[in-house]
Design a binder for these strands. Structure first.
Lengths: 195, 195
DNA sequence: CGATTCTTTGAAAACAGTCAATCTGTGTGG
DNA sequence: CCACACAGATTGACTGTTTTCAAAGAATCG
C-alpha cells in the first residue's frame, strides 16, 4: 500500500539507523495522502497535524501578507519534507499555506504516531531534530540571500541550485519566490538571455 | 567574579528548572569575556566555540556579501544570546561576524563545558534546544517581514519592537539591517517626521 | 581644536512596480 | 477537429522609489 521513494528508505536506514525489522514496523504508522493539483495540504489557521514527505509531485509554501499578496517561501519537490514545523511543534494554528502545484503523493506521519515513534525509536527523534536544525540553517542562509542580493543574483542562484523547478513551476510563482513581479522577472530573463 | 544579570539567573531557574544548588555548580563553568567597542567576538571563518549571553552592551551580527557589502542580520542587547548556532553546532567555520558596538560583557560557556552540562543537566539541554527552536521560528517570521514588507513597514516595525536600539545604534547600521542605504533611511525618517 | 564618524541633502540614473494590451500555448466542449 | 476560453508570459508606456555619487552639515572623541 505505502510505496515510498527509495530515497525515503535510504534516509531512514542511513541517517536514522533503522534496521530492516524496525523499518517495517515504523512504516506501518505512515499513510499515503493524494492531492490533486491546486489542492491545499495546509492553510493559514490550520494546525499542522502530521509531518509529510513528498513522494511524488511538487508543492509551494506561501503566506498571505498584510497587503493580501501571496508570498512564496519555498517549493518542495520529491524527496523534500513539507509542513509547518512551528505549528507541528506547538500544535497551534500556523500562518502558512501549502498547495499542490501538480498531482501529489505525500507520505504522512500523524502527530500522535510521531510522538509514539520518537519514544519507540529514539534514533528517529534524533533524525527529526537534525532535520529541524538543517531546516533552520537553510532558512538562515536563504534569508541572507533574500535580504542582501539583487533580484538578478537571486534568480541566478535559484537557476543554479534548483534548475528542475523551471521545468515544473510557472514563472509567476518563481517571481513571487524571488520577491518581484512577474513582469520584472520576464524583463530580467530577457536581459540575461541577451548575454 | 561572574556577575550575571538577574534575568540570566531567572531564566535558568524558571525555564531550565535549576535549583539553587545546581545553579551554583553550573555557574562555575561559565566565564566572563570583556569586549571593547569595535572588537569582534566572532569573524567569518572562525569556529564558534562557546555559547554567549550578553550581560552588558550591544553587538551586531553581520556578514559580508559577494558585493563586499556588510549586511546586518540582527543586533543583540542585554539579555540576548549571541553566537553562530550553526557553527557552534557543527564546529565548522561560520560565515558571520559579531562585533561589539559598545564596550560589552559576555558570559561564555565553552563548547566542552556545554557538552558536559547537557549531560549533567538534561534540563539545560532541553532549555537550549527550546532556545534554538524559538530562534528558528523567529528567523522564519523575520524572513517574512524582510522579504514581503516595504522599507517603511520594516522601519516602523523595528521602531515599535526595539525602540531602545535607536538610542544606542548609529542609523547607518539600522539602515543595513533594514536592507536600505543610509541616505534612504534618512529620507524615510524625514518623511515620517513630517506626519 | 582637528579628525573622524555619522547624518543629511541634492541631482541624476537605475530599477522595479503598475496598468493595460497583446501574444502564446493548453485544454475543453461543441 | 475546430472554436473558444483560460492561464501564463511578454511588451510598452508611465510612475514611483531607491541607489549612486558628491558634497556639505552635525556630532563625537581624543
Amino acid at each position: 500500500m505505502l510505496d515510498p521513494d527509495p530515497r525515503f528508505l535510504a534516509k531512514l536506514r542511513q541517517q536514522a539507523e533503522f534496521t530492516d525489522a524496525e523499518l517495517a514496523e515504523f512504516l506501518e504508522c505512515w499513510e499515503t495522502k493524494l492531492l490533486r493539483k491546486k489542492d491545499h495540504y495546509l492553510r493559514a489557521g490550520d494546525i499542522c497535524r502530521s509531518t509529510a514527505y513528498v513522494n511524488k509531485g511538487c508543492l509551494r509554501r506561501y503566506e498571505i501578507g498584510a497587503d493580501a499578496k501571496e508570498n512564496i517561501l519555498n517549493f518542495a519537490l520529491e524527496d523534500w519534507w513539507v509542513g509547518d514545523l512551528e505549528s507541528f511543534w506547538n500544535q497551534k494554528p500556523g500562518r502558512f499555506y501549502i498547495q499542490a502545484l501538480e498531482d501529489c503523493e505525500l507520505l504522512l506521519l500523524s502527530r500522535v504516531e510521531f510522538v509514539k515513534a520518537c519514544d519507540r525509536f529514539p534514533k528517529y527523534k534524533a533524525f527529526h531534530d537534525e532535520k529541524m536544525h538543517r531546516s533552520y540553517f537553510a532558512t538562515l542562509k536563504r534569508m541572507t540571500v533574500a535580504t542582501s542580493g539583487s533580484a538578478e543574483e537571486k534568480y541566478l542562484l535559484l537557476a543554479k541550485e534548483q534548475p528542475q523547478l523551471f521545468q515544473r513551476v510557472p514563472l509567476h510563482y518563481i517571481a513571487s519566490y524571488l520577491g518581484i513581479e512577474p513582469e520584472s522577472l520576464s524583463r530580467l530573463r530577457r536581459k540575461l538571455a541577451g548575454k
